[in-house]
Design a protein around this nucleic acid. Structure first.
Lengths: 192, 192
DNA sequence: CGCGTAACCGGAGCCAGACTCACCTTATGG
DNA sequence: CCATAAGGTGAGTCTGGCTCCGGTTACGCG
């Protein structure tokens, strides 16, 4: 029932302008009120709501694009690295990704931590990407086999939602700890 | 400079009624709007705001009481268990604690994940409690020594903030992974 | 080219929910 | 008892997401 027909040219323009504006606003951080986004896109509020159910849906859509890109990484990483190393890198990649802007991290948190259907796509895609890495690691005997992508995703979602100053360094360290918990052969005594 | 004089009797009654009402409302979950809390305490909104700066401050105060109790646990645990086991138990205790009610978990998240000065007390106290366990574990050579309580607290804060259905099981598993990442001698291959 | 129509405009206005303020009410100590 | 400061009140403000609708514009098919 979606896609009655290809969208009129001006509608498509506006839709894209909105997405662009939203992305900029989210990167620029702090607020990103619907009105600001709409004005920045050069359209009226009503138009924004013509294209997106809610503010959250717009944000989700912006984020979905990034997520798709991010989810291409595992295949690439697995080609070049051992599965455990690939996993480690991907975890850091996610953190990095959430760090680009305040609003962006907020968005990631929404994607990861809620279960609103609006974010289902993005969430599933990311869980799948993680599963890919986890399965490869487990098959190689490097990563425990009793964890699925959904769980890891949630753990990361929590971490990335934090918005305190210096959170990124913390997030990186937490991701590292998480990684150690996921693989076999975690740090041995006296590594300090 | 605080405590000009001991608070008038009725003021004290109201303050306590508010805390009681807030706790009930938070346990009862979902909303806990200021108006609901105030009515439940039998006072007007203005009275609520006479006693607490913001809604968050009230929530924080409610939570501070529980935190104090929770923070007594490490000493007890260390007396009865090996440091690593004590740490594991404490992590689960925190998760458990966040699970008592929706609003409560939200409160914990605020305490753990934000850096608003309102929550400083609770946060410091919990970080201290965790430091106690981590230090004991590190001294015994069971836990890595490069992590402090603040980090662990943040990781937990993120996890406990999740409000999705079935989150508690997830939180428990994530806590377990985190624990494995914190200690030496994590699971060895083929435990599956 | 011309018409039917999808899309847009613009903004007044609704609603929820946190918070404020000008004005009463009452406990309390002298 | 009464003066008075501490306390209480609740209608109202503010913010920010979201809705609605009459009128206009730009597509794009035939």
């Amino acid at each position: 029932m979606p896609s009655s027909r290809p969208l009129r040219a001006d509608a498509r323009r506006n839709r894209e302008a909105l997405l662009r504006a939203a992305r900029e606003a989210l990167l620029a951080a702090d607020d990103a009120h619907v009105e600001v986004i709409a004005r920045r896109a050069g359209v009226a509020i009503g138009t924004l709501y013509r294209h997106f159910e809610t503010r959250g849906a717009l944000v989700a859509e912006v984020y979905r694009q990034d997520v798709a890109e991010l989810c291409a990484a595992p295949a690439r990483l697995l080609a070049d690295h051992a599965p455990d190393e690939a996993l480690r890198t991907f975890l850091l990649l996610i953190v990095e990704h959430a760090a680009v802007g305040k609003g962006m991290g907020e968005a990631l948190e929404s994607v990861l931590a809620t279960e609103s259907p609006v974010f289902d796509d993005a969430r599933n895609e990311m869980a799948r990407a993680l599963d890919e890495l986890l399965a490869a690691g487990a098959a190689a005997g490097l990563v425990r086999g009793d964890v699925d992508g959904r769980i890891v995703l949630r753990a990361l979602g929590g971490i990335c939602g934090l918005r305190a100053a210096g959170w990124k360094d913390d997030a990186v360290r937490i991701a590292a700890i998480l990684y150690d918990g996921l693989r076999y052969g975690a740090p041995s005594p006296r590594d300090s």
